[in-house]
Write a protein that binds this DNA or RNA. Sequence first.
DNA 1: TGAACTCCGTAAACACCGTTCACTGAACAG
DNA 2: CTGTTCAGTGAACGGTGTTTACGGAGTTCA
Lengths: 247, 247
Amino acid sequence: MTEATRRERLRAETERDIRRQARALLVERGRDAVTLRAIARELGITAPALYRYYDSREDLLLKLADDICTDLAGELDAGLDGLPEDDVAAQVYAVCRGFRRWALGHPQEFALVFASTEAKIGSCDADAAGQVGDQFGRVFLQVAGKLIAAHPLAAEVTGDVPAELHADLAAFRQVLAATVHEQGVEVDEGVLTLGAVHRIAQSWVRLYGHVALEVFGRFPFAVANPEPLFDSMLADLLGDMGLPPQP
Amino acid sequence: MTEATRRERLRAETERDIRRQARALLVERGRDAVTLRAIARELGITAPALYRYYDSREDLLLKLADDICTDLAGELDAGLDGLPEDDVAAQVYAVCRGFRRWALGHPQEFALVFASTEAKIGSCDADAAGQVGDQFGRVFLQVAGKLIAAHPLAAEVTGDVPAELHADLAAFRQVLAATVHEQGVEVDEGVLTLGAVHRIAQSWVRLYGHVALEVFGRFPFAVANPEPLFDSMLADLLGDMGLPPQP
DNA sequence: TGAACTCCGTAAACACCGTTCACTGAACAG
DNA sequence: CTGTTCAGTGAACGGTGTTTACGGAGTTCA
């Protein structure tokens, strides 16, 4: 039945335990508290044992960031679950609101994955094959692709895109197309204009900007009631994308 | 001449040295490398001596963040220096481009001040008196205020602002007015509509969002040529504010 | 079964870290 | 000169990441 040997099962189990403990420490007391010795102590083993599973603390944090991306993607997917297949607007709202909710509820994880100066952590860029690197990026790009496909921005928008941007945006288009395709949804090449992918990038700038500012408390004034501020940004953003207003 | 006693002079001098060393460590090897022992070692003293100057490492980092804000403000002010007093558009461009340039050139400092989960670091919100907390906020808000004053957005924009936002935006308006006033520039109360300050907040979201994404490398695709991407965002943003296009 | 091998976990050690504490000696105030 | 203030010290405590040599259990194969 179980292909795995006893040793392999045990190994997988402790690896899971390690990440779970690391995660708990990160959530409760911040990145600096994710300590090899603290993890080991909690697991009833010694710190050097962890080196059988990870090359270093840095390596563990990297894997942890990957886990977090996957969990976030799962949460966003769950939020997408009950929605009608053809109501792209609702899906976009769900992903954007879900991202904000998750970030506010998991500030330490957000900081690790989305505000880390270590280049290796959570960098969402695609590898050579044009596949997106992490699970969160997958969800975001899938919905973005469906948004473009459902609400084709006229070609006239493309004219606005400066020539210097073409190369980068073409690369982005490829990533988008690959991500959407991976999910089985076909999107017309003609619809995926540079202007459209440019707007997607701008949308990510605004979504990320708002969420990060809120998580880090860096608005230039004390925001007592942040939710409507976010909603107005979101409405604006989706208006720019050609979607009708929606609660 | 010098009112200060010998002891006071020496104290001020070593305090400056401490911050300079701390800053160097932050820049060269990141936040975690800003270590009391490393600073002391470099200064030829022992670590406990630093406790005569700061309550803790955390306290030192907080003061460091304040220094950084002031330096950033100085750099932005310098970029503003040669510009014609009445060309607000040029001033806005200078501040936005200057902020990006600074952030890309000082990623560790940017992360400390603008992406820290510790609430006490760099939180730009105003205190009870309506004064902005840090020097960087001062520069940003001054230029924003002048932008509104020079290019009054018609009152019709205000109608778009949801009622739930009014309280927060009114607070922001107060901060803005106080900051601009502090510099001697008068701005008409009628011009500072809620719609206008709302757009300022949205502009900060986009400026911060782009810069942070670039510093942390979290665009969903590999950006080979980020400058035009920033410029197009900036042009869009200032178009929204009612400014004419500009190189 | 028994030998050979793989590999998880250990203890000890090294070089760091923040922080506290009792102390010295120079600068200062009168 | 006397008493006080205070920057800086050295020792110590408990914490950290990481390396090393080593034991012992799981696995493989003859």
